[in-house]
Design a binder for these strands. Sequence first.
DNA 1: CATTATACATTGCATCACATAGTATTGTCA
DNA 2: TGACAATACTATGTGATGCAATGTATAATG
Lengths: 115, 115
Amino acid sequence: MTKANQQYAENLQLELRRGVIVLAVLSQLRQTHYGYSLRQALVDKGFDVNEGTLYPLLRRLESQGLLNSEWDLEEGGRPRRYYTLSEAGQAILTDLKAEWKYLGVVMDGLLVDDK
Amino acid sequence: MTKANQQYAENLQLELRRGVIVLAVLSQLRQTHYGYSLRQALVDKGFDVNEGTLYPLLRRLESQGLLNSEWDLEEGGRPRRYYTLSEAGQAILTDLKAEWKYLGVVMDGLLVDDK
DNA sequence: CATTATACATTGCATCACATAGTATTGTCA
DNA sequence: TGACAATACTATGTGATGCAATGTATAATG
């Protein structure tokens, strides 16, 4: 595999993960998290997310009304912004889960080693 | 669900499918196809792809050396460009299949209804 | 003879992940 | 004590890419 091909492969793997990020994030926000702890939870479970991806994503989802957030300015600690799913966010999560499941079935059909 | 939320939901579903498109395309090109027949094969199996997505995608994959193509200029027929997987394309397909499988496992872990 | 299906191409727009860099505090370890 | 890593969040620019829209042209269908 040439260097160029390796580059293409990495790129395609990134694309593959790209679409799933929101689903991954929403799934974990069934429990309250702040950005950093959310990232750790995802990484721990095998889903690596860049900080430069996650933080803006959370702000975007909040601006779309899918998340609620609240600052925690505890004394003697760094300020944390806690996120939870809004009702709309829960509805979207349900949608995306269904779509994900459907996609799995479709892809299984496409990837069958026929003949 | 408000109109805005419906918009977000559609958008996120598009994103979800986005990353998988290349994998879907490569999977079907284990058999030779031209663009139009490839699109039909995908749609038939539940994977809807836009023409404006598919045709440029095929050109791009070819330019990256993952596909080979050949015009068929049969008399009394519309010209068709037939695509097949190159060796590099087959390698990438194998990679992506593995990544897809891994992603499935990870997502299953994330989506578990714990508690 | 008009409409639909086939077959491919192109352009501009909008979305979005990531790399990178920056700020600031807390903890660790030599 | 002083350097470095970890914590926690923000901001910006770039590149990749899907899609809607539009165009071209031929064949089939009614």
